[in-house]
Design a protein around this nucleic acid. Structure first.
Lengths: 124, 124
DNA sequence: TTGACATATGCCGATATGGGTATATATTGT
DNA sequence: ACAATATATACCCATATCGGCATATGTCAA
C-alpha cells in the first residue's frame, strides 16, 4: 500500500504546497475565482490548475458553479475548520513548551483515549 | 515528480492519518511516551511506529531523549501552531457557510453576475 | 561474555502522486 | 456550421510513500 489517497481527507489535500497556494489565491481573489483567473494569477499550466482544483473539489475544500463556459471556484472553509480544531488540541504543546505539559495532557487524556500509564520522570 | 517529500513540512507529515494518531497518543500519554508504550498503545508493529516517528522527528513535530535503551518521544507543538494559523486565515470562509453548499453557490452566482440555468455539475 | 530487550534501519513490492502534453467536452460568437 | 474560448481528462513517466520482514545497533542484566 502506498500513501492513502489524497482525495480522502482535507489533511492530505492541503499537504500539497501548490494546493495551499490555490486556496490562498482563491481567498485573495475574494473567495471565488475562475480557472482562467487562477491560471493567470498562479502562472501555472491550465491542466495543472484544473487537476489541483479537482482534488480540492473531492475533499470539499472548494465548490464550483458553472457560468457559461467558465467555472467559478469558491473556497469552502468547513474542512479547514476541522483541521483548525485538530491543531488547536495541541495548543498546550506550543504555549508552555517546557512546563506543565503533563498536567494539561491529563485533561486531554480524558478527551481522547486511555493512555498507557507509565509514569516516568520528566526527562532532562 | 511525485509528491514533495513528506519530510519537508509539517503539513505533509500530518497528512498521514497514522501520524496523527501517533501525535494523539503522545498527547494523551502525557506529552511524552516511549516507543514501546506507543507500540502497545497503538497496536502496530514496532518498525512502523519507529518509521512514523522518524518522519515526525524530521519535521520537528516530536523530539527525542535517550534514556538507557529507551527513547522518550515528546510532542513539539510549534509546527502545529503554524498550521493552526494558516487555517485560521480561512476562518471567514467557514463562519458564514452553514447552509447547503450548492444553494449558497447558486445564490452567490446570481448575486455576482449573470446566473446560469444549467447547474448540471456542481460540487463533485 | 552472553543474552534479552529497545529501537532504528535497510530492502522490497505495490501503488498513488504530480507534472507534461495532447486531446476531449462544452459553450459562445460569427 | 465553424472557429474560438474555457475547462476537464487521459495517458505516460519518474519518483516517493507505506507496509512488511529481516536485521543492525545499542544497552542493561546475569
Amino acid at each position: 500500500m502506498a500513501r492513502a489517497a489524497t482525495t480522502l481527507d482535507p489533511f492530505n489535500a492541503i499537504a500539497e504546497p501548490k494546493r495551499r497556494l490555490v486556496l490562498g489565491a482563491l481567498a485573495a481573489g475574494g473567495g471565488e475565482l475562475t480557472v482562467n483567473a487562477l491560471t493567470n494569477t498562479l502562472g501555472w499550466p491550465q491542466p495543472q490548475v484544473s487537476k489541483h482544483l479537482a482534488v480540492l473539489r473531492q475533499v470539499n475544500l472548494v465548490s464550483v458553479t458553472r457560468r457559461g463556459r467558465e467555472r467559478m471556484y469558491r473556497v469552502n472553509g468547513e474542512p479547514l475548520r476541522s483541521i483548525h480544531y485538530w491543531t488547536k488540541a495541541f495548543e498546550q504543546f506550543w504555549e508552555h513548551q517546557l512546563g506543565r505539559i503533563k498536567d494539561r495532557a491529563e485533561a486531554m487524556a480524558n478527551h481522547v483515549q486511555s493512555p498507557s500509564k507509565h509514569p516516568k520522570e520528566t526527562t532532562q
